[in-house]
């Protein structure tokens, strides 16, 4: 099993931090609309930011560590998730096409997400390194193209 948890953890933490900033701004705006005093608005929005960030400090490493993927013969196995575990095995020869998705934080950390589309659905697989992603793509190309 590959495990590039550190990079995935960092990317997840960065995304949750952005989410925390957006949530705190929304909280500030909502409290301001209802006429709450300025200091209370700032305190509440800061609290929202710190609570979400603190949760991310626990959640992101757990999520990063939970990501596991392997290709044994024809079977691609992917599993991840903290509260809800997601685990799937698919026949790699049935994969019709692959999409590689990289957001701004994936570019910084070197992680990426591979989307394997096959008849009947698709599987998203977080991958911790470029080489691992390239490895999957090249193996798929060898079998398909």
């Amino acid at each position: 099993m590959h495990n590039e948890s550190a990079r995935i953890t960092l990317a997840a933490e960065l995304y949750i931090t952005v989410f925390a900033a957006a949530a705190s701004a929304a909280a500030y705006a909502a409290l301001s609309i209802f006429g709450t005093r300025g200091t209370v608005c700032i305190t509440a929005s800061a609290a929202v930011f710190f609570v979400i960030t603190a949760v991310s400090l626990v959640y992101a490493p757990l999520f990063g560590r939970s990501v596991k993927h392997s290709l044994n013969g024809r079977i691609l196995s992917v599993s991840y998730g903290v509260l809800v575990k997601y685990s799937v095995s698919i026949d790699f020869t049935r994969v019709v096409y692959i999409t590689r998705i990289r957001g701004p934080f994936e570019k910084i950390t070197g992680a990426s997400v591979l989307e394997f589309s096959f008849p009947g659905g698709c599987v998203f697989m977080p991958v911790g390194s470029d080489s691992a992603a390239e490895g999957y793509i090249s193996r798929w190309k060898q079998r398909t193209l």
């Binding site: 096409y97 590689r100 998705i101 990289r102 957001g103 701004p104 570019k107 193209l145």
Partner: peptide
């Protein structure tokens, strides 16, 4: 020959490889 590559996205960039025979 054999494939089409499609790249798109501003913030979230994606690269899709479509095999021609599929």
């Amino acid at each position: 020959p054999g494939r089409i590559i499609l790249k798109k996205g501003v913030l979230f960039k994606s690269e899709r490889i479509l095999p021609e025979k599929r």
